[in-house]
Amino acid sequence: MADEEKPASSPPPAGEPPKAAAPKPAAAAAGAHVPPKPPPAMAATPWESALTESLKQAFGDRISQYSTYLGQNFIVANAEALDSILDFLKLEADFDYLVDITAVDYPKLEKRFELVYILYSFASNERVRVKIHVADGVKAPSVVHVHLGANWLEREVFDMFGVEFEGHPDMRRILLPEEWTGFPLRKEYSILQQDDRWVKENLGIESGH
């Protein structure tokens, strides 16, 4: 079995150098069609439930998409409405546990950062994801006043993607050193890239690629 498995993983390394560029054409394809924001053609289906009805009533066109994919529900919303949506979900629909905040970078899109807020409700044992899109250099609203746990999660998004959060009590890097330059999880940041100046000054070594 061990020998049988190896060939499965060995072809990809052989094709690795061309593959490194592979995600970009895919993202470019999405950019060519301009309006569709989500990644190219995810086979998501519309999501309808009592919750979506109440959200539609409360937020109207500030929520642009209600979808479900692989049984997981998500909505796409305007960035400005984010904190009121999370507040509504927390108080009216019992989504009282903010599981995670993360981001995905689509450099070819005008609003390149897709911020993903994963919520869970202990009462109904359900999850929902709220997504917003922000352009480079535009601040996203902080949700620390809704969920205290957002504090470090937002700092990590800032650290890795450079998305700043408006109203965050302590907007600093969290994992990388404070003087570090660049945002590693942006797509243009190569995996071999690092802040050579920082490494040299602080660690006293010539960093080799």
Binding site: P12, G15, K19, A22, P23, A26, A27, P39, P40, A41, M42, A43, A44, Y69, L70, Q72, V99, D100, T102, V104, V116, I118, R127, R129
Partner: peptide
């Protein structure tokens, strides 16, 4: 192409993976 969030009860709490695929091998 698609995305999924899957989590398990790890010894320390909820361990989740949010994975986005663009239909490549990576």
């Amino acid at each position: 192409v698609g995305e999924a969030y899957v989590s398990i009860e790890a010894p320390k709490g909820e361990l989740g993976y949010y994975v986005v695929s663009d239909n490549s091998t990576q």
